[in-house]
Design a protein around this nucleic acid. Structure first.
Length: 485
RNA sequence: CGGGGUGUAGCGCAGCUGGUCAGCGCGCAUGGUUUGGGACCAUGAGGUCGCCGGUUCGAAUCCGGCCACCCCGACCA
């Protein structure tokens, strides 16, 4: 008997999505637990994935005119209190350092849950003139939020992210920045790198960032029909600029308060990627960010065969590396079948089988992770051309499948009863689109009755107005409701 | 913070009406046979049974107290 505990499909099918998710995270070697509750260790395979995501995201951040900087981990606790909504939102989940160097601190330090305050403090010093604007900085760092309930990648006590913080001369400029990040950085990243079809929209008042004027979000549907807020871009208006005195003298000689934005995306995206693309065999890595894009499985019986196979493997590896494909050969002392399953669990986009028959014919067998049966035999000279092509095909297949799934689980209901039925049915659970009266009370009632929240007010929406999905009063807000992670 | 549950080898578990109860499966190590979809045989290594105290001739097992973790809710990127 094989080790049943080692493979995902034997333990958890998708009917127990939560368990399936944990199995994939741990067995694919992305992360492990930690001695501190709610924290996790990210293993090399998971961190390599994060690095590729980081690079792709960082390229977009730079391409849109931003620079990276670094701000301190510790923040004076008084800073948090300067923005009323901000402290209300974050105080309950902040870790506080009260002792250091063997002494009690005169003012406790908080471990950053996000950096608007300390960055606002610094920006106040750096901004004097309209000529200093805009200030377009980003930082990659860790933050800490003491959550009650945690899950690897999706919600951890400490997580890694990027947080951009910008300062602008006008309200219009700040709004343009907020949308630029939403569209050209986040949405583009989700579609082109992660193969995740996101929905762009505005957060309702109750769901926006504490202290923000407006929060834009990219929401994605997971494999169980629930929603994951995957990245957010906030127009902070003048709230933080006022609290931290970010002022400048404008061309007209007047001293004016600046307009700021902030935006972030975290290791939570790793969890999203798993839950959008994974299947019953395990992970399915989007090719652009996959740590290993093609895995070579050599097959042989006799020593002579091994030599012939090894020569071809080396040739194929070199050819693929030359065209920028992240390829690896698996020479472990295991049977091929074991390796097939192992690499499928880890989600490698393409498997390359090379056996004695192939060595003799100067060919290899390619198998995309998206279809076990779509085996292709390719001459060794064609590998360097075909593999990059197939990677793109796998990316497209993942995107198409995710989009088709989202569409099949997105509903426009005729009644609130139907709304409730869908949200109570695991087999149909998904997004429900409809009109909303705009009343926070109504939104709260829906949440209390169904656990669903307004994920966003999509930017792409029908014109006009209609009866609110819950109370029936005419509303002009078009909303997406869903249960969320 | 409310409700429920669990702590025995790296992982998953059995033993729990006190006395061959220190065991099983997987994993790990060594050797051999295997190898185009999850291999098999043999031999090994590995645990003060969550912690502290009590009852007893004797405690993984019974009692008390701690601690930790997990699940379900409320809160949340």
């Amino acid at each position: 008997m094989a080790d049943e505990s080692k493979f995902v499909e034997d333990l958890a099918e998708k009917d127990d999505f939560a368990q399936w998710y944990l199995d994939v995270v741990y067995k694919a070697g992305l992360a492990d637990e930690s001695p501190v509750r709610g924290c996790m260790t990210i293993k090399p395979y998971g961190y390599a994935l994060w690095e590729h995501m980081q690079r792709a995201m960082d390229d977009r951040i730079k391409a849109t005119g931003h620079e990276n900087a670094y701000f301190p981990l510790f923040i004076p606790s008084s800073f948090l209190a300067r923005e009323a909504e901000h402290i209300e939102g974050f105080a309950p989940e902040v870790a506080v350092v009260t002792h250091a160097g063997g002494e009690e601190l005169t003012e406790p330090l908080i471990v950053r849950p996000t950096s608007e305050t300390v960055i606002g403090h610094m920006y106040a010093k750096w901004v004097q003139s309209y000529r200093d604007l805009p200030l377009l900085y980003n930082q990659w760092c860790n933050v800490v939020r003491w959550e009650k309930r945690t899950r690897p990648f999706l919600r951890t006590t400490e997580f890694l992210w990027q947080e951009g913080h910008t300062v602008h001369r006008t309200e219009d400029e700040a709004e343009a920045e907020t949308l630029l990040i939403l569209n050209d950085v986040y949405y583009d990243f989700f579609v082109k790198e992660l193969a995740i079809p996101g929905i762009r929209g505005l957060k309702s008042e109750s769901q926006k960032f504490p202290g923000a004027l407006r929060t834009y979000t990219v929401e994605a549907m997971m494999g169980d029909g629930k929603a994951l807020q995957s990245a957010t871009s906030h127009n902070l208006g003048q709230n933080f600029a006022r609290s931290f005195d970010i002022q400048f003298q404008d061309a007209d000689g007047q001293v004016k308060t600046a307009w700021t934005t902030s935006w972030g995306a975290s290791t939570r995206m790793v969890g999203g990627l798993i839950m959008v693309h994974g299947d019953s065999a395990g992970l399915r890595m989007p090719p652009r960010v996959a740590p290993i894009q093609a895995i070579v499985v050599p097959i042989w019986r006799k020593e002579a065969e091994r030599e012939a196979v090894a020569a071809l493997v080396a040739e194929v590896e070199a050819a693929l590396k030359a065209v920028g494909v992240r390829v690896k050969a698996d020479w472990r002392e295991e049977r091929p079948g074991f390796k097939y399953n192992d690499w499928e669990l880890r989600g490698v986009p393409i498997r390359i089988e090379i056996g004695p028959r192939d060595a003799q014919n100067g060919q290899v067998v390619l198998v995309p992770r998206t279809s076990r049966t779509a085996k292709e035999t390719v001459s060794k000279d064609g590998v360097a051309r075909r593999v990059p092509e197939m990677l793109q095909e796998v990316h497209q297949a993942l995107y198409d499948q995710a989009l088709a799934f989202r569409q099949s689980r997105t509903y426009q209901v005729q009644s609130y009863e139907e709304f409730q039925e869908i949200l109570a049915d695991k087999a149909r659970l998904g997004f429900i689109e409809g009109w909303w009266c705009g009343d926070a009370q109504c939104e709260a009632e829906v949440k209390a009755e169904t656990q669903a929240t307004i994920r966003c007010l999509p930017l792409e929406r029908p014109d006009g107005s209609g009866p609110c999905i819950h109370c029936g009063k005419t509303g002009s807000a078009w909303a997406v409701f869903a249960k969320a992670y």
